[in-house]
Design a protein around this nucleic acid. Structure first.
Lengths: 338, 338
DNA sequence: TAAATAAATGACAACGTCGACATTTTTTCT
DNA sequence: AGAAAAAATGTCGACGTTGTCATTTATTTA
């Protein structure tokens, strides 16, 4: 591998002068610079970051640690936001996943330390509470899409699920719906709880009665291994006589909403005229392809990623972070299903 | 930052002995090893990979270069497969995206070289032909989901779109369908061409007549900025009288299939009894949530990623790669829509 | 024109680790 | 016990780069 010394010899200058050219330092005569640049091009020299790092002890790389492999549509947005912000700042990105186990997480922390990463974005695929496998984190860390209730000084960025649920429920109430059902995510999930509470509060404030029997789980089974049952649940709701049937169904996510719309079709109930459907997450693959297009609450994962990256960068820059936990608004995207 | 010398001083041994302990070399007395390990734990020492790399000039990290940010459902599977195989081999993964521009790609190649990556997986989000921005690639490279027709010696792994299209079309023919329509992807895309050719061949072989008017584009506009028109196209097909209407519709992907099913519902045409629908890609989010569940051709992106990673590892291990271009089979996933 | 100042370049050490080789300690053998 | 062999540990330098400081060269000033 060609090194700075090879270039120096080839150009007939000292290695330090080559270093100056490479790092665009001011005091190099134009003629010298040119000579060196030619040599660099000629020999195909590329500086060795590892050697640089050895002197500076700063790698210029940020690590993303995720629980499950980055395999869901959410995570993809999230990572996109992170990447965009970090590459603006000239930082590299190293992605590693823990497999969701404590051992795995410890191994990743170690790798990150070995590579002297500048900082870490600790991201989960679902909004949840977490406990780090290494306390305190050995590198500057920002939590993404999760929070650590027992470590309130760890910065975090999460979606405001309560606000999202509130906005959706209030919208349905404002549209005049009086009989509103809610098919939820797996109830153990943080997001499900927050959205459920928001649903209740919004309807109470709007004076819309809440029917406990119409708050139904769209999934069954343990978190991570649940099976879908939204189609069945929705079919039962929609089989009720016209004047007893819900006129609106709020859904824990867009996949549930797709099943609800499928159930409505099967039951010959028209969306949105007979029953309005509101989704959650705005998975474009579903929301913009099903007809009618889905009215849904967008989860701003791209922005969450971007914000988290920004927060980490400011942390690394030595800024004091005032607001520890950012909650990002979830906008209602009105399309045709409600 | 605590270095090997700090540990050595603390444990009262030489730095080389610490090095031996860290690298699990045999010839260290148990008592010494223990002393050193205590010191390591006490001081929180973590070896510096950069310094190691400086001696060995091998980073143990493989780069993934993608065109568009890893943001589609495909890419997520792909990267998952790559990651799983590489972490088996103890390699790290560095993901970077080129933004689809030549400058961006050059910058990424440079970064990869600066970090002395062991090798590169060059992945695209859609199966396509590519020309590298740097020829020949300065690091060992395997193309993933794309191929370079003018550089036949570059190893690549791609889905066998022809075979997938063939299997799907033959299945419909075997089920006895005589009137089969095909709503395609953007016709410029490689996958669309291969699948289209397979569609024609399969029907010819089965003796099913091909109606040119029934091969219709589901998208319009340039690649990357197309708009969906599958719902409209399908609605027109399904508005035909019962005995002139297609009895089966093959779709370029699952998003198209979802629109076709939506159109069928709107037209009060039953799936699969009146019209069978076959998708492509097996996007689980759609295929397992829409009712009826989608019969579709799976794109083995996870396996493609895994295979590509494996291929690169063998390349790095000095093995000679006999088969330059791997085509991965696309299995038909039979569910309820056909 | 010589001295004074500024600009350009170079010599050398240091970063953290490990390979090559040297030295010391322990064990085995006669 | 003393010599020989084996095991354990240490010394030193090199990897590629850049910071510090010294030196050379060019430019300005009196």
């Amino acid at each position: 591998m060609v090194s700075i010394k090879d270039v120096a010899a080839y150009a007939g200058v000292s290695d330090k002068t080559v270093s100056r050219v490479v790092n665009r330092e001011a005091s190099v005569k134009a003629a010298t610079r040119e000579k060196v640049e030619d040599a660099i091009k000629e020999l195909g020299y590329v500086p060795n970051q590892a050697a640089r790092l050895m002197r500076s002890n700063r790698s210029g790389v940020v690590g993303i640690m995720t629980d499950v492999v980055a395999r869901t549509a959410n995570s993809v947005e999230l990572i996109g936001g992170i990447q965009d912000r970090l590459s603006e700042a000239g930082k590299g990105v190293l992605i590693a996943n823990t497999g969701g186990t404590e051992d795995g997480e410890q191994a990743v922390w170690r790798t990150f330390q070995e590579h002297r990463l500048d900082g870490v974005l600790y991201a989960t695929m679902f909004h949840q509470h977490v406990t780090l496998a290494v306390e305190p984190p050995p590198l500057p860390t920002v939590l993404v899409n999760c929070s650590a209730p027992d470590k309130p000084d760890l910065p975090s960025v999460v979606p405001d699920d309560f606000e999202g649920g509130y906005v959706a429920a209030r919208y349905l109430a404002q549209e005049g719906h009086k009989r509103i059902a809610y098919i939820t995510l797996n109830p153990q999930i943080v997001a499900a709880k927050l959205r459920g509470a928001a649903f209740q509060q919004a309807l109470e404030e709007a004076g819309v009665p809440i029917n406990g029997d119409w708050i139904l789980a769209g999934y069954e089974g343990p978190v991570g291994a649940e099976t879908m049952r939204a189609f069945r649940v929705a079919s039962e709701l929609l089989a009720l006589p016209d004047d007893e049937r819900p006129t609106a169904i709020m859904c824990g996510n867009d996949e549930i909403a797709l099943q609800v719309i499928s159930a409505a079709h099967a039951a010959r109930v028209t969306v949105p005229d007979d029953v309005a459907v509101v989704g959650f997450d705005d998975f474009k693959m579903i929301s913009t392809n099903v007809v009618p297009n889905l009215t849904t609450v967008g989860l701003p994962y791209y922005d969450i990623g971007k914000r988290a990256a920004d927060k980490l960068l400011r942390l690394l820059g030595g800024e004091t972070i005032e607001i520890r936990s950012d909650k990002m608004a979830c906008p209602l995207v009105v399309r045709d299903s409600a």
